[in-house]
Design a protein around this nucleic acid. Structure first.
Length: 153
DNA sequence: GCCAACGTTGGC
DNA sequence: GCCAACGTTGGC
């Protein structure tokens, strides 16, 4: 089981939305590197939910991958913000996964806090200027993170 | 195939 | 609101 970090803006889709829905299709990913990470996800993988463009940005909760290899339906919908006219149904360009809500942590662990605890090698999200919305979390770092974050609620 | 222009992300 | 990073696009 691998660990990931997945970003979303809380105003757009935050942990509250996911908790309410129970599970969600992680659609709208239009970056090849992030897409390629999603393609390597397996059912049962865990993902830290990270609030980006938040004050402060940081980790707020935990998700679990429950379906993989799904075609992102938003790419074919002209009225969708993520519509991609270059993607054809016979050769879809963008995938997504389905994630379920596992829980939230008692407190947000901010990006500043992460930088105090982890090097860029240990946790790529702390790299200055990083913009990737899906990142791997090395296993040793995942364990340390879980210890820092405390129990899920 | 190069590269300038442009758009998006996300921290600050 | 600004800016850096960086991916994409399109002219040549």
């Amino acid at each position: 089981m691998a660990h990931w970090l997945m970003k979303s803006e809380p105003d757009v889709y935050g942990i509250d939305h996911l908790q309410h829905e129970g599970s969600t299709l992680w659609d709208g990913i239009r970056n090849y590197q992030a897409r390629n990470f999603m393609r390597t996800m397996a059912i049962g993988d865990r993902a830290f939910f990270y609030h980006s463009n938040a004050k402060p940005p940081g980790i707020v909760g935990m998700m679990e991958v429950i379906e993989t290899g799904l075609t992102d339906p938003s790419q074919f919908d002209p009225s969708n913000k993520y519509y991609d006219p270059k993607s054809k149904p016979e050769a879809p360009r963008w995938d997504c996964v389905r994630l379920r809500y596992v829980g939230r942590f008692a407190e947000l662990l901010s990006l500043d806090g992460l930088r105090e605890q982890f090097s860029v090698e240990e946790l790529p999200v702390v790299r200055p200027g990083n913009r990737l919305s899906i990142l791997p979390v090395p296993e040793g770092s995942a364990e340390r993170l879980l210890a820092l974050l405390g129990p899920l609620r």
